[in-house]
Write a protein that binds this DNA or RNA. Structure first.
Lengths: 204, 204
DNA sequence: CCATTATTTGAACATCGTTCAATAATCATG
DNA sequence: CATGATTATTGAACGATGTTCAAATAATGG
């Protein structure tokens, strides 16, 4: 073969990422293979490595796309709400829903760690911070009396907690003594942290 | 070779688990290999498979031992505290400390998923529930007015949240806008959930 | 002392990520 | 239009992985 030019570099990248997403979604992460991705888009491994530097590089870009999808859904949901509290709850609902609907894709985001030669300096970091920023922004609006550090702290604590509920629920590692719903657990966390946040005041 | 009988089946299992633990601790999970474990204890792969049915089986037993270690530390820490709240905080501190001191071992517990033929029915489940039970027990003692469901619910929400903070912090996926300490984030979550718990009352 | 039994080995297999020379199709040029 | 340069694509090859299993070996029992 040779320069077939059926697809551009960028087109192949997109095709590969989409194929990888579909494989993870239907067969789980452990079924994701460079050769399988390549053959699913009508190419061979060599081509894949011509377009991604690593297998991990492919995974990283797939994850970035997943995060973008989550953020997009959050922004859409947030737009419909008037109060900061409503927006925070809407964001959490999107997070929980996405994790429930796409458990494998969601897990890969957090459980995939690129070995030594990490080509992920900012690609993911920036996207993570976007989510935290969205939460923090609403905390800020909720109570302008807090200093930025306190706002960011509360937002981080809450969001990490929500994340923890999702992870344990998804991996079946939640306490089974009482078959709780993720939504209710998340509600409890939101109620708790928001109330505590309103009660607390800056020392300044 | 042949029946050398230098070590019993059970001794080899223990040696293998300890060797695996050491490898994970020093080189990370991706460096854990059946052949490496075997050679580190003076045997070959074949023997390892004579004693564990899977590579995953070995990992699972390693994880069980790690959880046992965490639980033991928790029980020790809990023994020194008088109040339920003090005990909950002590447990959380142990959890955070262990995750910080042994990040790779801690992560394997939660990120390792045994493929299809899972030989992990109760081995892990029981151990997880032990931790949740310890937390729930102190919630119960904290406020006898709540019905068991509410107690378990609050305990689950708090502990999942703490777990989330540990995971995100360990994997470097926490919001960097404010370089928070895990302990303070955990404190915020504990304060929030405990206060909310005290405020809430059973409808009965 | 030999036969049985249990233990340990290591070669073999399929599959994985990864590399890279060879190949084939296109483009540019005269 | 033909020919050479360029580039996309291939697929064989490599080392390492988990896993299996017949063979080899040591201990045991009669």
């Amino acid at each position: 073969m040779g320069r077939r030019s059926d697809h551009s570099r960028e087109e192949i990248r997109k095709m590969a990422i989409d194929a990888a997403t579909k494989i993870v979604e239907t067969e789980g992460f452990q079924a994701l293979t460079a050769r399988k991705v390549a053959s699913n888009i009508g190419y061979t491994v060599g081509t894949l490595y011509h377009v991604f530097r690593n297998f991990d590089d492919l995974v990283i870009h797939m994850n970035a796309q997943t995060i973008d999808e989550i953020v997009a859904r959050m922004q859409k949901a947030v737009g419909k709400k008037r109060s900061p509290e409503g927006r925070i709850r809407a964001m959490a609902a999107v997070y929980v829903d996405f994790a429930t609907e796409h458990p494998d894709r969601w897990r890969v985001i957090f459980e995939h760690q690129a070995p030594p030669g990490v080509p992920t300096p900012e690609l993911m970091g920036v996207r993570r911070d976007v989510v935290f920023e969205m939460v923090a922004e609403n905390f800020r609006e909720l109570s302008p009396n807090h200093i930025p550090q306190e706002v960011a702290h509360a937002a981080t604590a809450l969001w990490s907690g929500i994340h923890g509920i999702c992870i344990l629920a998804l991996t079946g590692k939640l306490y089974l003594g009482g078959a709780f719903s993720m939504s209710k657990l998340v509600d409890t966390l939101i109620d708790s942290v928001l109330n505590e946040f309103r009660r607390t005041q800056s020392a300044d």
